[in-house]
Amino acid sequence: MKKRYTISVFTEDNVGLLNRVTIIFTRRKINIESIAASDSEVKNVHRYTIVITETEDLVKKVVLQLEKQVEVIKAFYHEDDAIVYQEIALYKVPTDILVAGKEAEKIVRSHYARVLSVEADFTVIEKTGHKEETQALFNDLEPYGILEFVRSGRIAISKPMKTLTSIVEELENEINN
């Protein structure tokens, strides 16, 4: 059965690695639903957070093929309930729909969204949450006219307690003895 999985890939911070990571997915024609790249808590360790919907069996194989890459330090996969995750969405809307008392203003409040910037003709609203939540705000605002919309890739922190630092230390010890 296909499910949504979040794959965290920890790599050396080298040019071209993103490509090496993504071709593992594209060669199996797996659609990457979202991808986010950033530093990690360990110096020179980069991380990618990748969301796909596939069977667990396939995800396992992909994770092993990711780890097989020479510059990939470690890869993990998790179901949604094993991680804490967020996405951020930005919405650009006409400022006049938000004038006090109008419906749209109530919508923004009820979604606990933040106003980032107000200009004479447009306003940028920010909403952080799960995709369902950012999408719900999108759906509610849509009738009023959304000028521009963007959502980031998912970023996620796993619940299990083994730290990246300890994993990296173990691997570094391997080389030294």
């Binding site: 790599t11 050396e12 020479v70 510059e71 330090i73 990296v168 391997e174 080389i175």
Partner: peptide, 8 residues
Amino acid sequence: FGGMRSYQ
């Protein structure tokens, strides 16, 4: 070359 942490 003496090895690297990402490659065992």
